[in-house]
Design a protein around this nucleic acid. Structure first.
Lengths: 246, 246
DNA sequence: CCACTATGTGAACGGTGTGCACATTGCCAA
DNA sequence: TTGGCAATGTGCACACCGTTCACATAGTGG
């Protein structure tokens, strides 16, 4: 009975209308960006991969940049999910200062780890491969639609709020904490990704912990609480001597 | 007597041999990158600007990427000079903990300010537009040759060493400080540049100070010393609430 | 059933990175 | 001084790219 006009189901036979080309394009673009890198990504290749004419893409995206913007949004959603997953692994008792700090550490670790595992995607998200929507623009709709839960920035805000609520840091110290915390992990992620700081997996984890620890200290969190949050991976950061270049 | 065969002097008449095409190409590339951005930069346009055939560039650079690598090296040198200039402005008495901390702050500020004033150049330096030389490669020679003084990373190392020497931080706390400090300012620079964190000039200066303060705290520097280092621009960081996106 | 709109096609334009055979030139050896 | 060689620059060609436009096709509501 179903005459399989529902599209996306059977990409086998050459139907003139693809059915869900927009999403398929984003999907193909995500994969191509991951393999070729953002600089070598080509709209034509994405179309070719779908057996579709290059011009067809322009029915769904104004630009190559617009397609990459969709890729970036997709990445943001994946990052948010990845961060939530990291939070989910924290076992400390709810409401405690130790837990709030541990969640902070987990989120930072998730951020850096995501960047390292999906460097190309990450670069599309935070490089200037697409125009980031001005706040209050129409793009906000798509943004909101892309996130069933919280977006990454909202997660960061909530994590900081929880630090205050749990008494791990003071309200005064919290002010501006978003920028400091984000900058710290973002910078580490960037340096690791671009190959300017060559860190092996364990060195990287250690660097991330080191960065989180430093930020928490800067926020006025007590060393005891920090130590408890860093407990799962306590190791001497003594061998944190990076290779140069730059 | 001088028959002006010294090249670079008179680019007016159409000589078949340019004389110093390599440097001229880098120069043109630097300017083009600054105006068009790294993604829109084209080797052909650079050649065109010099009245030279595109293929000529391949006598001096293996690749478009190799040309951009030269641009990146040039940027690194400018960044180093800019940081030194920032250090030069610090007036505190030599050897004091206050001075060491002030120098640290000045260097961080110089880093972010350079990035914001030359975003395209900065992106070439730290994005993956060119291959960063493996440590111990032949490229190290060019690297060393490009820096009459210290390179940016060496400056950071020295600044941290001075913090220890001046008694502002302990040797133990210093370990891994390069990564933390670099990541913090680099992240702030990146977020500011890519337009994900929209900060006006004064907000940005404040954010930078906030980041430096946090890193110094994390390094175990005393609040009094930090306060003295931040004295020139003390202001309530209360309005540090960034616009979202991400 | 018919028109309308959404979607996909094919060809074309100008631009790009890059290789190749060839032209021109500066310079060193005889 | 001269002849030849290595360095440097040219012209052309190729494949690919982003983008546009007129046209083809197909699903959908009157």
């Amino acid at each position: 009975m179903d005459r399989m006009k529902s599209a996306a189901a059977a990409p086998s036979k050459a139907r003139y209308h693809h059915g869900d080309l927009r999403n398929a394009l984003v999907e193909a673009a995500v994969e191509l960006v991951a393999t070729r890198g953002p600089e070598a990504f080509s709209l034509r290749e994405a179309a070719r991969a779908l057996g579709v004419s290059p011009a067809a893409a322009y029915r769904h995206f104004e630009d190559k940049r617009a397609l990459l913007a969709a890729v970036a949004l997709d990445g943001l959603a994946r990052l948010a999910a990845w961060m939530e997953k990291g939070i989910g692994k924290v076992a400390s008792p709810p409401g405690s200062a130790a837990r709030a700090a541990a969640v902070f550490v987990a989120v930072g670790d998730a951020y850096v780890e995501f960047a390292v595992r999906h460097p190309a995607h990450f670069r599309v998200m935070f490089g200037s491969w697409c125009d980031h929507p001005e706040p209050g623009e129409a793009g906000e709709l798509a943004h909101a639609a892309a996130f069933p839960g919280r977006d990454p920035f909202q997660i960061l805000i909530d994590v900081l709020d929880d630090l205050v609520r749990a008494g791990a840091i003071t309200t005064a110290a919290r002010s501006g904490g978003e920028v400091v915390a984000w900058a710290a992990v973002h910078g580490l992620a960037g340096l690791a990704i671009e190959g300017v700081l060559r860190l092996g997996p364990s060195e990287r984890r250690q660097a991330t912990q080191h960065v989180s620890r430093s930020v928490l200290l800067g926020l006025g969190c007590s060393p005891a609480v920090i130590a408890s949050a860093l407990a799962p991976l306590k190791a001497d950061p003594g061998d944190l001597v990076p290779k140069r270049k730059g």
